[in-house]
Design a protein around this nucleic acid. Structure first.
Lengths: 214, 214
DNA sequence: TGAGATTTGTGAACTTCGTCACAGCAATGC
DNA sequence: GCATTGCTGTGACGAAGTTCACAAATCTCA
């Protein structure tokens, strides 16, 4: 690791959640929060919250809780890059557009600034506030904008070749919505979000729970 | 548990993946597969594959591997309901429509057969091959079609109330794409798929990996 | 100021998930 | 038929993630 501190990937995800909750769901007047209040909002245990916050260096005081502002700043110091961190989206189909419209203007510090597609109908246009480039420009655009993070939403058949291209172009983190597992070299962080796997898992346990109830 | 066998949720997800790979990526002539071949396709270790397959009851023979057909049947016996299992989608926005078009006609045994939305522009119409009902009909439709599984893709502000309604209407499994954690009673299986958390996690580790490389 | 109530910070236990490594067995070659 | 090869099935181990539980710290109120 670059600096001495390691931080678990699940913790990073929850920190992002805590920050959102602090910004949106804590009544404005409140200057302090307790771990059990955040826990309730985040649907985790208070111990989990405290454990996660340890890795930000924030500390609260017994009896009073954590200063809301300190938490937001502390979490941001861990999660945010000093400058804007740009993200690329590859594949501007139904899902790609949903992702674009979902993220547009959400966090000023983390922005999808470039998208790519093979379809000439789409390339050259601005879709959901984001310019769509042809795949041929991928390497150049990623380099120019120093993009290290990509969201992949292309058809299964194209997923691996696209990944290889992304990696060769300097991408170090991929969020994969294509329904195939990706092969990436060491040093590239990969998060798989296969909807089929998710749905089939939920369906399996739903069935089971429904049967149990009978 | 209803029957004696417990099965880990991650294993269920991977079994679904193995089946897809067996159906699509194994050259038709091949009657047998080795665990290391499946492992390569699924991007996991051979030991993981064998471990997962244990819970299906399938067994292979040393030197020859697993019979492809046995595996597909064995996995299906675990994952599939004898009848069609119906799924509901709540929230037919950008993401909802992407989900619908993604799943339409994919697995005959697991089908999204009803969708719901508050927007009167959408209700009453068939969108991406799926009838969209007003929320007021939710309980009735889920009951009539005996639906126990739901995909949630509504705005954050509506997510918890919608969940409560789903649970009250007999849902036992929820796949949540709304960007808030849901509170569900025991006995309801919940899978959270918050895109913001995922993206922020990937961005964090991408940045870290990129810095390390310098 | 001191007693009591409450919450933090964290070592230790526990749970879950994945990997190792090897005994045992089917197939093949000699 | 015996030795060899190479893969399966699984007990044991290890890593990651979560919860427990309690000492130490702060606040409240008399």
């Amino acid at each position: 690791m670059m600096n001495g501190v390691t931080i678990a990937s699940k913790t990073v995800g929850r920190l992002s959640l805590y920050r959102r909750l602090l910004e949106s769901s804590i009544p404005c007047g409140r200057e302090h929060v307790f771990s059990h209040e955040l826990a309730l909002l985040a649907c985790v245990t208070p111990a989990q919250v405290r454990r996660d916050l340890m890795s930000t260096g924030c500390s609260g005081s017994p009896g009073k809780g954590y200063r809301t502002k300190d938490l937001i700043d502390g979490i941001s110091k861990v999660l945010d890059y000093p400058e804007v961190q740009r993200v690329a989206l590859v594949g501007v189909g139904n899902l790609g557009r949903a992702i674009l419209s979902y993220f547009s203007g959400r966090r000023p510090n983390l922005r999808i600034t470039a998208s790519f597609d093979t379809d000439p109908q789409k390339t050259g246009r601005v879709i959901n506030g984001c310019r769509c480039h042809p795949m041929s420009e991928l390497t150049a655009v990623l380099g120019r904008e120093s993009i290290a993070t990509a969201i992949l939403a292309v058809p299964a058949a194209r997923a691996q070749e696209t990944t290889d291209l992304l990696v060769a172009s300097g991408i170090h983190g991929i969020l994969n919505y294509a329904p195939v597992p990706l092969r990436v070299p060491e040093g590239v962080f990969l998060e798989e979000r296969d909807m089929t796997m998710s749905l089939e898992t939920v369906a399996f346990f739903a069935r089971r729970a429904a049967l149990e109830r009978k």
